[in-house]
Design a binder for these strands. Structure first.
Length: 500
DNA sequence: TCTGGGGTCCTAGACCTT
DNA sequence: TCTGAAGGTCTAGGACCC
C-alpha cells in the first residue's frame, strides 16, 4: 500500500464554461451556461457565476433559463475543448508516463512513477507547478488533489475547487472521511444513497460501522465489498494509462417524439451508419449489436444480438439493428434512439471475405461530410446555421462569435481572447456573404501581440506565453514552469518573453 | 417543468453444455 | 439413460460517472 500522497487528481474548473469565458472577453465574470439548447437540452457545465443562481450540470436547460434568464447560453464546442484538453494532458504526461484521463477535463497522475514526487512536500511542489503551467499554457484554472489513493485524491480536488490545491496527509484519511456523506464515495449515486439512507446509513463512518456483511446484503456483493473497503480508506486501484474501449455507441434525442414507424426505422439505419463510422475510425469491430429505445414515457429498453463473429460492416449492423427494432413496440412514440456495438475486437472476420461490402463502405464514407459534434460543417451547402457561441469571421469587422440568430438575422460580437474589454455587436443577414464560420482562436497569445497558431494544436512553452484569461484569484508561486514535452515546446522555442 | 450523450460495471434470469 | 449441479454465455436492465 502506498504511504506517500503521490497520486494527483486534476479537475479543470467549470471547464467548458471557463474556456468560453476565456475565449469571449465580454462573458468574463458573467453567468455562462453550456449545453444543449433544444427543447430537451440539459446543462453540460455552468460557470461559477451561473451556479450562484442554482444552475448545475445535468439540469434541464428550460429550468436553467428560468433560474438564470440573463445568463449566456452556448452550445458546446467539443473540438475546441479537445484542443485545450490535449495541451493539459501533455503537461500531465511531462510529469509521469502514468496518466489516466477520465474525461476532457479530469485525469489521475501517478507522480511516483514519473519520479516527479516521492513525499508530501515534493508532491505539493509538483502540483503547484502544474497549476501554474496549466494557467500559463491555456489561461484556465484547474484544481489539484493529492493523496495516497485515487479515491482520496479525487475527494481532495473536489475540496480544492475552484482554483486550489488540497493534500490529504497520510494517516488523516479516516478522520477526514468519517463524517462525510456516503454520496462522497465513488459509486454511490442517488439510488444507492437512498438505499443506504433507508437502512439508516448516511455517513462514511456509518458504512464502516455497519460491517461488510451488512453492506453486501444491502447493495450486492461487488458493490458491498468495494464500499466497505473505501469507507476504511482502502483503495488500491492503480493509475492505468491505457484503457481498452469496451463499446462504441451513438444516440439521438429528438426534439419531438417520433410516432411514424417508418421514420423510426430510417433513424435506426442512420444511427447504425454513424456507429459504424465511429467503429471504423477507431479501427475496431464488434460482435454484439445493441439497440436502445427510450419511449414517450421515458422508459428505456435495450435489445441486443450477438453475431457469430465481429463485424464493422455497415450492412450487417444495419440489418441487426432493424431485426432488433422489430421486437420493440414503439406505439406512443419514441424520444431517443441509439445503436451501439460491444464485444470489440481490433479485426474483422468479414475482412477475409467481404470485398463486396467494400463498395457499401465507400458509399458510406462519401456520405460522411459533417463532424460528429457539428463543427466543421459546410453551411453554404443548404442553409447556413449559426450556432450560439461559435466563432465567425467577417471581412469588414474581423473575428467574432455568434450571440444569437433567428428570423433570418445573426447577431455577432466582435472580440478575441486577447481583448481587454467587451467587443462591439453587429447584426447581419444569415446569408451575408461577408460572414463565414471560423476556427476558435488560441486562448493565450504570444507577447509579440500575434496570436499563436490558429490551429490550437501547437503552442509555445509557458515561458513564452502570457495568460489572458480571467484575473488570477490568488498569486501563483514564483517557481519555474515545469519542463515541457516536445509537442508543446514548438514554434521556434525562443520567443523571449517572461511570464507575469 | 422535466430529464443529453457516451461510456463502464454489476446483477440476475434464461439457456446451454458438461 | 436420466437427473441435478456447476459453470459459461447471452440478454436486459439498473446504477453510476463525467
Amino acid at each position: 500500500m502506498r504511504t506517500a500522497p503521490t497520486i494527483l487528481h486534476l479537475d479543470m474548473d467549470a471547464f467548458f464554461a471557463s474556456a468560453e469565458q476565456a475565449s469571449k472577453p465580454s462573458l468574463r465574470g458573467k453567468a455562462v451556461v453550456v449545453g444543449g439548447l433544444g427543447p430537451r437540452g440539459v446543462v453540460a457545465t455552468a460557470s461559477y457565476e451561473a451556479r450562484v443562481f442554482g444552475v448545475h450540470s445535468a439540469m434541464p436547460m428550460a429550468q436553467a433559463r428560468r433560474l438564470a434568464p440573463n445568463a449566456a447560453y452556448l452550445v458546446p464546442r467539443f473540438g475546441f475543448y479537445r484542443s485545450i484538453s490535449e495541451q493539459v494532458m501533455a503537461l500531465l504526461r511531462a510529469l509521469s508516463p502514468l496518466v489516466e484521463p477520465l474525461s476532457l477535463d479530469e485525469a489521475f497522475v501517478d507522480l511516483e512513477a514519473g519520479r516527479a514526487a516521492w513525499d508530501g512536500e515534493s508532491a505539493r511542489r509538483a502540483g503547484e507547478r502544474l497549476r501554474a503551467d496549466i494557467r500559463a499554457v491555456t489561461g484556465l484554472t484547474g484544481s489539484v488533489g493529492l493523496a495516497a489513493s485515487k479515491m482520496l485524491a479525487k475527494i481532495a480536488s473536489e475540496r480544492a475547487k475552484p482554483d486550489g490545491l488540497v493534500l490529504i496527509e497520510p494517516g488523516s484519511e479516516r478522520t477526514l472521511l468519517g463524517p462525510l456523506s456516503v454520496r462522497t464515495l465513488p459509486g454511490v449515486g442517488p439510488a444507492t444513497g437512498d438505499h443506504l439512507r433507508r437502512a439508516g446509513i448516511t455517513t462514511v463512518d456509518e458504512i464502516a460501522e455497519a460491517g461488510e456483511d451488512e453492506l453486501v446484503r444491502l447493495v450486492g456483493k461487488a458493490h458491498g465489498h468495494a464500499l466497505y473497503a473505501m469507507a476504511l480508506a482502502h483503495d488500491e486501484r492503480p493509475v492505468v494509462a491505457e484503457r481498452e474501449t469496451k463499446s462504441v455507441s451513438v444516440e439521438d434525442t429528438y426534439d419531438v417524439d417520433i410516432h411514424d414507424r417508418v421514420r423510426v426505422g430510417l433513424e435506426v439505419q442512420r444511427l447504425a451508419d454513424r456507429c459504424v463510422r465511429r467503429l471504423r475510425g477507431a479501427g475496431l469491430s464488434g460482435r454484439t449489436i445493441v439497440l436502445k429505445v427510450r419511449r414517450y414515457d421515458f422508459s428505456t429498453l435495450t435489445r441486443s444480438e450477438t453475431l457469430r463473429g465481429p463485424t464493422d460492416d455497415p450492412g450487417v449492423v444495419r440489418e441487426a439493428a432493424a431485426r432488433l427494432l422489430d421486437s420493440v413496440d414503439t406505439t406512443g412514440g419514441v424520444r431517443l434512439l441509439g445503436v451501439g456495438v460491444s464485444g470489440l475486437a481490433d479485426y474483422t472476420q468479414e475482412d477475409l471475405f467481404a470485398q463486396a461490402a467494400g463498395e457499401q463502405v465507400d458509399l458510406l464514407e462519401e456520405e460522411h461530410t459533417e463532424e460528429e459534434d457539428g463543427e466543421g460543417e459546410q453551411p453554404a451547402l443548404v442553409e447556413r446555421r449559426w450556432p450560439a457561441g461559435h466563432d465567425v469571421h467577417h471581412r469588414g469587422f474581423g473575428h467574432g462569435w455568434v450571440q444569437g440568430s433567428g428570423l433570418g438575422r445573426v447577431t455577432v460580437r466582435f472580440e478575441t481572447p486577447g481583448d481587454v474589454g467587451p467587443g462591439r455587436v453587429r447584426t447581419f443577414r444569415t446569408d451575408d456573404p461577408e460572414l463565414e464560420p471560423a476556427q476558435p482562436l488560441p486562448l493565450v497569445t504570444l507577447d509579440t501581440g500575434e496570436p499563436a497558431d490558429g490551429s490550437g494544436q501547437l503552442v509555445p512553452p509557458p515561458e513564452d506565453r502570457r495568460p489572458v484569461g480571467p484575473p488570477a484569484v490568488s498569486a501563483q508561486p514564483s517557481s519555474e514552469p515545469a519542463s515541457l514535452p516536445k509537442s508543446l515546446s514548438g514554434r521556434d522555442g525562443g520567443g523571449a518573453t517572461s511570464r507575469p
